[in-house]
């Protein structure tokens, strides 16, 4: 490869990386859950936004009064702002409305670990988490 071609390739790589980085946080989080999902089930193939939507809308009956579902605070439409029981506004869950959603694994894990227990009475599986994020990323 000539030196000038190497230079062109390098510049192209930088542009490519720039585009990739815009989503690398969320893709990294999804990759993390996909790896765990394959550990849970070697047949796992891909996350389902449709199942994520159903999971978001469900009222599994394990939650406290007033927090029976994700939608109790986040509303039925993830494009809407939500509100906690104590009155604080929550940024929309839909990634189109809040692009920073699901880009920080530590924060994502903190909230899944709390809210899965609160609403579902148990930890969520990696597949459930990945489905949920896939749904919100599609909104």
């Amino acid at each position: 490869m000539s030196l000038s071609r190497a230079a062109l390739v390098s510049v192209a790589l930088v542009f490519g990386c720039g585009i990739a980085m815009a989503t690398s946080g969320r893709l990294g989080v999804l990759d993390h859950y996909a790896a765990l999902a394959r550990q849970e089930n070697p047949q796992f193939q891909e996350f389902s936004a449709a199942q994520g939507r159903a999971f978001f809308l469900a009222s599994p009956g394990a939650g406290e009064a007033g927090i029976a579902s994700c939608t109790s605070c986040h509303t039925n439409d993830p494009h809407n702002q939500g509100r906690t029981r104590a009155g604080k506004l929550l940024d929309p869950m839909a990634v189109s409305r809040t692009p920073t959603r699901f880009t920080d694994l530590e924060k994502v894990e903190k909230w899944f670990s709390r809210n899965c227990q609160t609403v579902y009475g148990r930890p969520c599986t990696a597949v459930e988490k990945g489905n949920f994020i896939s749904y919100m990323a599609s909104q």
């Binding site: 390098s10 720039g18 980085m21 690398s24």
Partner: peptide
């Protein structure tokens, strides 16, 4: 160009790792 490109990529990777963590 190669030196600049590689520098940008290294910096970008460091930054993305920080965001990820």
């Amino acid at each position: 160009l190669i030196v600049i490109s590689v520098s940008i990529m290294v910096l970008a990777l460091q930054r993305s790792n920080q965001v990820y963590a």
